[in-house]
Design a protein around this nucleic acid. Sequence first.
DNA 1: TGGCCTTTGTGAAATTGTGCACATGCGACG
DNA 2: CGTCGCATGTGCACAATTTCACAAAGGCCA
Lengths: 231, 231
Amino acid sequence: MARTRRRIPEATVARLPVYLQILDEQANLAIDNISSEGLAELAGVNAAKVRKDLSYLGSYGTRGVGYEVGYLVYQIRRELGLDHDWPVVIVGAGNLGQALAGYGGFGERGFRVAGIVDIDDVKVGSELGGLIVAPLSDLGKIVAARGVSIGVVATPPSAAQDAADLLVAAGVTSVLNFAPVMLNVPLGVTVRKVDLAVELQILSYHEQRRVNAASAQLQAAPLVRRGGASA
Amino acid sequence: MARTRRRIPEATVARLPVYLQILDEQANLAIDNISSEGLAELAGVNAAKVRKDLSYLGSYGTRGVGYEVGYLVYQIRRELGLDHDWPVVIVGAGNLGQALAGYGGFGERGFRVAGIVDIDDVKVGSELGGLIVAPLSDLGKIVAARGVSIGVVATPPSAAQDAADLLVAAGVTSVLNFAPVMLNVPLGVTVRKVDLAVELQILSYHEQRRVNAASAQLQAAPLVRRGGASA
DNA sequence: TGGCCTTTGTGAAATTGTGCACATGCGACG
DNA sequence: CGTCGCATGTGCACAATTTCACAAAGGCCA
């Protein structure tokens, strides 16, 4: 029984959830077989990449035919550790924390929100998506009682490091950080950062390039017909 | 006047906003000079990488001294197109859309929310962070009137492609997609996808690995002292 | 059963990103 | 005005990731 299969490249790990999402949809459409080509199209990537990615899980395709959707779903689930639920705890009941608590997409995909805590007494006690906001001091209790290993930091930037420290102290080993700051955590704790403003800034860069490219073109050929070239 | 400086690698573009964030903080602390080493530490990356990244902008450091914070801020801003504001429009006033509209972090960093629209008449007219939710049919008007080029898709998955199509038709050329689906857009339109569940699934993978590793260890050495090795 | 068609799985090449190591240039100080 | 020390900028090797190209293998039909 191959226990620790060869390590899966990080880039592949980031794509497996996308494949899984698509395969789930296909399963709902009663499609039970899919080729690397088809999956690639739906995922917006190259077919060879799909095959290589899936090959890290093992040889689960059938040559000349493709992959059996149900079985592939099962295998990806297992590899990602999604064959059981992961309770998560949210720190910070501000705008974002509230939205996350109310966001159905989490529970649907196996990440039940076990609790949401906030330091602000005004927010404590209010209800959010079927949950009561608990005081920050309950964090340890919640983590221990519900076996939480994933924490979400949805605090203002200035409080994010404290939140992370408390999560780690409570025993959390994975943190999803929405605050625009770098978190320092001990070795053995995984952090992923999602910074909404960064995403917009990357888009801005591309917009800016478009603008620059357009003006460079004008520079090169100042006498364009009105209503000329559009990209 | 070097117009289109050599293209900046995508990986670097993704880090520039992080540097910018840190540099802004340093500026607020009245620190006006920083070394690649110092910046690297704060950004959680390697110093050589910082230098290489910054070198794509030009030679803006001083050997033996470091980088002037203010000037660097100015240069990164310019390169990312952040020397002016970018109005954005949000499609979908559900949980996430509401949170985004109310999230101060956007406006603060130059991305003013020019409007938020929803297809649901019940939501239209309600107020969110100083904005009135407009009907979906106003999308074109808003985009045109405010010169919006960035759109945010915060709809349920099933409506996301329609939302994207409408945004593109209205003239938007960059889309930030929060729905867990692949968007098809014409060439020349940039899409970035942020999928919160995917982030959690990646964390789940690492958690699962930890669990597997621990059980493998037990397998290998079944007779551990109670309270034995902790990672 | 045998040949044909299709699609996987995977070496190998190409591309992209990272990190080291050090020559170079700049400011400080005497 | 020269020397010293420090931090940048970059060539280079290496690591990771993507893509190509094709042999191997399953299924289908005659």
